[in-house]
Simulated scan of single mutants.
Amino acid sequence: MFKGSMVAIVTPFKNGKVDEKALEELIEWHIKEGTHAIVPCGTTGEASTLDYEEHYRVIEITVKVVNKRVPVIAGTGSNSTEEAIMIARKAEQLGADGSLSVTPYYNKPTQEGLYRHFKEIADKTGLPMILYNVPGRTSVNMLPETVARLAEHPRIVGIKEATGDMKQVSQIIRLCGSDFAVISGDDFTNLPLLALGGRGFISVTANVCPKDVAELFNSWERGDISRAREIHYKLEPINKAMFIETNPIPVKTALAMMGKIKEEFRLPLCEMSETNKQKLAEVLRSADLIS
């Protein structure tokens, strides 16, 4: 259902507000460059500092601008099950094609708690759901056996796996079968995950290199493994640079250097250190993304 290069799109800010014009321009650029799906209001979209009105407005703008040309998978997760249900229902009303729901953070639920959380959301909402497992941010790792239980639900169609653990990815694919979409949540694992049977990536790097990230997937799909490998190594320094500081600080800084958005964050995120900004600029120059 969902596959390819799916950008975890940033939320541009200007003078403390969502920069709607910049967001619209980013979306159009992504579609022109071949991005296969747009994912607003995720980690990279700074969803944790958007209020409800802003969150819904970003989804609304994305759906309107995309206009069914590619799928829109809205970030709807929360560490409150009822809140996650509420946001997912609103995303459906706004016209999203799917939802991305992160494992509850701070609560540190058990595996049974994780199962019940996602099952409750899927039971009470209508969108196809992609689970999102990112223990580095949430302090809880959803194990393959739990994912396999959830994969039996007709509305739970895949998982964004951001453990960086190919053994865990392999177990999930084996347990859940070919109909369940396992998606890379770490750009450095994009190609290895495809080799294991994954369906694509929800990508940070696609924010700055949409054409290359899409072409990596397209090359793999048409069986041009050498071309996919070539792009993987081309993107490796950029993938690393996108995490030189906490995401989305580097990617938003990069987009600002490229003239796409303003360099603006919301606390507790802040601008990069000058040393790291210089390192980032060197990588972008080497990739011909800035002059």
Score class of each variant (00 low, 15 high):
residue 259 G to V: 08
residue 247 N to K: 09
residue 252 K to S: 04
residue 239 N to D: 13
residue 250 P to W: 02
residue 230 E to M: 13
residue 227 R to K: 15
residue 259 G to E: 06
residue 229 R to W: 07
residue 244 I to Y: 10
residue 251 V to S: 00
residue 258 M to Q: 15
residue 258 M to G: 12
residue 234 K to Y: 12
residue 234 K to P: 02
residue 251 V to G: 00
residue 238 I to Y: 05
residue 258 M to C: 13
residue 250 P to H: 04
residue 244 I to F: 10
residue 258 M to Y: 08
residue 234 K to R: 15
residue 229 R to L: 14
residue 248 P to K: 04
residue 238 I to A: 06
residue 247 N to Y: 07
residue 250 P to D: 06
residue 247 N to E: 13
residue 249 I to E: 02
residue 256 A to E: 09
residue 240 K to C: 09
residue 246 T to V: 10
residue 246 T to W: 04
residue 247 N to H: 07
residue 247 N to A: 10
residue 261 I to H: 01
residue 246 T to L: 09
residue 257 M to S: 11
residue 252 K to T: 09
residue 237 P to N: 14
residue 246 T to G: 04
residue 246 T to Y: 05
residue 235 L to D: 02
residue 259 G to Q: 09
residue 253 T to I: 08
residue 233 Y to P: 05
residue 240 K to G: 07
residue 231 I to D: 00
residue 233 Y to T: 14
residue 245 E to F: 05
residue 239 N to R: 03
residue 227 R to F: 12
residue 228 A to K: 02
residue 232 H to M: 10
residue 257 M to W: 05
residue 251 V to I: 15
residue 243 F to V: 14
residue 246 T to F: 04
residue 260 K to W: 07
residue 259 G to Y: 07
residue 252 K to V: 12
residue 237 P to S: 14
residue 254 A to C: 12
residue 230 E to T: 13
residue 260 K to N: 11
residue 238 I to Q: 02
residue 235 L to F: 07
residue 248 P to H: 06
residue 232 H to A: 04
residue 252 K to F: 08
residue 245 E to H: 08
residue 236 E to I: 03
residue 248 P to I: 05
residue 240 K to T: 14
residue 257 M to A: 15
residue 228 A to T: 08
residue 242 M to D: 02
residue 230 E to Y: 14
residue 240 K to F: 11
residue 260 K to Q: 11
residue 227 R to G: 08
residue 261 I to A: 00
residue 259 G to K: 03
residue 239 N to E: 10
residue 252 K to Y: 11
residue 261 I to M: 01
residue 236 E to F: 10
residue 253 T to R: 01
residue 235 L to T: 02
